[in-house]
C-alpha cells in the first residue's frame, strides 16, 4: 500500500522533485557542458565530434597556460595565508576590545566586499602607479602586486566569517581557562583559537577560491610577465574557444572542488561530531 507523504516529507512530492531537478539542471548544466566539451574532438568546438583527451595534452604543453596556472596557485596560497592571519586578527580585535569608533571600523572592514570589483581594480591600478610599485621585479616577487590586491578583498571575508563564529563563543570558557591559571595569551592559544578554527578554515577556503578565479581586479594589476590563469583563459577565448580552454577550465574546477572536499574532510576528522 502506498503511504501518502507526510506534511514535512517534501522530497516525496512530485512537483517539489521537479523543481529540485530544474534547479540543479539550471545550476550545473553549463558546467557539465563545459566539462563534456573538453573531451570534444573538434577544433571549433561547436558540435560533438567524438571523444579525445588530446586537448588536455595540448593544454599541458602550452607553456603560457601552465605558467599562468602556477602563478594563480602561488598567488592564491600566499593571499590565503595572509588573509587568514589578518582576518583572524581583525575579527578577534573587533570581538574582544571596546574602543572609540568601533561600529565605523566594523563597517570599513567589510567595505571591500560591497565595493564593485571594477572600482577596486581601477583603484588598485591607480594606487600602484601612484606609489611607483616596481613592475620589473624577478619572478615570484613580481606577483606581489596581484597578491596584495587579492588580500585586500579576501581578508574581509575571513574576518566576517571568523567574527560570526566568535559571537557564538561561551565567555565562561575563557573565564574557566583564566581561573585555571592561563594568562591572556594562553587563553587565546588554548581556548579562543581552537574555537575559531572552523571559521578560519571556512574563511581560508573562501579566500582561496576567490583569489584563484578572480579576474577583474587581477586584470588591472597584472603585467605582461604576471599573467594568471583566468586572465590567460580570457586572452585565449578572444582568439577562439577551443576544447583546450574547456580542458584548462575543467582542471581549475577539479582543483577547487578537491581543495574544498579535503578541507571539509580534515575538519570533520579532527572534530568528530562536535557541536559548533
Amino acid at each position: 500500500m502506498r503511504i501518502p507523504p507526510g506534511p514535512l516529507e517534501f522530497t516525496r512530492r512530485t512537483w517539489i522533485r521537479l523543481v529540485l531537478l530544474a534547479t540543479f539542471a539550471f545550476l550545473y548544466a553549463p558546467i557539465a557542458t563545459l566539462v563534456a566539451y573538453s573531451f570534444n574532438d573538434s577544433r571549433r568546438n561547436i558540435v560533438w565530434r567524438g571523444f579525445t583527451t588530446r586537448y588536455y595534452e595540448r593544454a599541458m604543453a602550452n607553456d603560457g597556460l601552465v605558467e599562468a596556472f602556477g602563478n594563480s596557485l602561488l598567488i592564491a596560497l600566499a593571499a590565503t595565508v595572509v588573509s587568514t592571519v589578518l582576518g583572524a586578527m581583525t575579527a578577534y580585535a573587533l570581538w574582544r576590545f571596546r574602543f572609540r569608533l568601533k561600529p565605523l571600523c566594523e563597517g570599513v572592514v567589510v567595505l571591500p566586499i560591497v565595493i564593485p570589483e571594477i572600482c577596486m581594480g581601477v583603484a588598485m591600478l591607480v594606487f600602484f602607479a601612484r606609489i611607483g610599485w616596481p613592475g620589473d621585479l624577478p619572478w615570484p616577487i613580481s606577483l606581489s602586486r596581484i597578491t596584495i590586491a587579492h588580500v585586500t578583498f579576501c581578508f574581509p571575508f575571513v574576518a566576517v566569517v571568523a567574527r560570526a563564529r566568535l559571537s557564538r563563543f561561551n565567555d565562561e570558557l575563557a573565564e574557566a581557562a583564566r581561573d585555571l591559571g592561563a594568562g591572556e595569551w594562553a587563553v587565546l592559544r588554548d581556548v579562543i583559537l581552537p574555537h575559531m578554527r572552523p571559521g578560519l578554515v571556512a574563511g581560508a577556503l573562501l579566500a582561496f577560491t576567490l583569489s584563484l578565479d578572480d579576474f577583474v581586479i587581477t586584470f588591472f594589476t597584472s603585467g605582461p610577465d604576471t599573467v594568471t590563469f583566468p586572465v590567460k583563459i580570457y586572452s585565449m577565448v578572444r582568439f577562439s574557444v577551443t576544447p583546450e580552454v574547456n580542458a584548462a577550465s575543467t582542471v581549475l574546477i577539479a582543483v577547487t572542488v578537491t581543495v574544498t572536499v579535503v578541507a571539509m574532510w580534515l575538519q570533520n576528522r579532527t572534530r568528530p561530531g562536535a557541536a559548533p
Binding site: 561561551n170 570558557l173 573565564e175 581561573d179 585555571l180 592561563a182
Partner: peptide
C-alpha cells in the same frame, strides 16, 4: 589577577573545553 588567585571555580555551564 584571576589566574594567580589560589581559588578555582566550577561554572554553571561547566565550561569544559570542547576540543
Amino acid at each position: 589577577p584571576a589566574n594567580r588567585r589560589p581559588v578555582n571555580m566550577v561554572f554553571q555551564s561547566y565550561a569544559l573545553f570542547p576540543h
